[in-house]
Design a protein around this nucleic acid. Structure first.
Lengths: 151, 151
DNA sequence: ATTCGCATGTCAGGAGCCTGACACGCAGAC
DNA sequence: GTCTGCGTGTCAGGCTCCTGACATGCGAAT
């Protein structure tokens, strides 16, 4: 009963997980009609905003391992949504880019996801949503910094 | 582009996922010395606060399926951390309870997780953390309500 | 009272993701 | 110049979790 215990409903961590789970479920539902799952969409979105990313960078951005991203990339490449050079222009990294078809599908997917996010923030004023974003970023930074420090 | 597109760093959804991933990683690290993973801890924590929950209720609370919770429960039961009646006292639900050993392990795990959460909220004033919790709960509610409505 | 709907527990089957490992390429220290 | 450390791409293996399905028990509608 000390404050060193976790009370579920008053725990930021629990509610955070709850919100993340709800968001993922809604995203899955919104992306399914387009034939995409969340990791695939994350990959396309990352490539749309930062063309030329390597598979390892995409993996970090999508919160999966390089190996998982590898299979995701193969699937998307087989569907003609992105291209990778057969040989590395420098180092070992293979810069990945969207094809025109990939960019078109991304536009649809991005719109669908934006709708979900809009619905999620529906009851929140803009300034409060912005503060929410900042605080979440601070939480993530505090945890990842600790990871590096505790090594 | 239009505001119907998602800009990664300014997207609440992306930062939400980022924070959730960081939290999960930190929790895994904190629980590993105790021989627990996140679903197992979630199960114990739920039982500690709401004894007598059924497997299906535990699954919803831990954001996994009944089947996954089933295997989690079997593992915890084999370790003597919880008990389930062999027959259902009413209906089909089997009310689950912690053993004394389970309660002791939970106390340790709960403390470790509370430390992680404390570190996550380190830079945030208490009132701001509370508002963060409220806003996250509102986000989750907005998404889940939509799920029910769109059926 | 019977039937329908719903929730629960349980059993395969399979997809997704991760851990572990190895080879390759670059940049820095010695 | 050589060597060490780090990042990347890739393969194999295994584990976790989910989807699908079925049987059981309760409650409400008919």
């Amino acid at each position: 009963m000390a404050q060193t215990r976790v009370d579920l409903d008053s725990s930021v961590g629990y509610v955070l997980k709850q919100a993340a789970a709800a968001l993922r479920a809604s995203m899955e539902a919104a992306l399914r009609p387009l034939g995409l799952n969340v990791p695939q969409y994350a990959c396309l979105e990352l490539l749309g905003q930062r063309p030329g990313l390597s598979a390892a960078e995409l993996a970090r951005g999508a919160f999966v391992t390089r190996q998982s991203m590898h299979t995701v990339l193969q699937g998307l490449q087989d569907r003609g949504l992105l291209t990778r050079p057969p040989t590395a222009p420098q180092g070992r990294a293979l810069p990945t880019r969207l094809t025109d078809q990939g960019a078109r599908l991304l536009a649809q997917a991005s719109g669908a996801v934006a709708e979900v996010e809009q619905r999620m923030l529906d009851g929140l004023p803009a300034d409060r949503a912005e503060r929410l974003r900042q605080d979440l970023a601070a939480c993530a930074a505090a945890l990842t910094a600790r990871e590096a420090a505790s090594s």
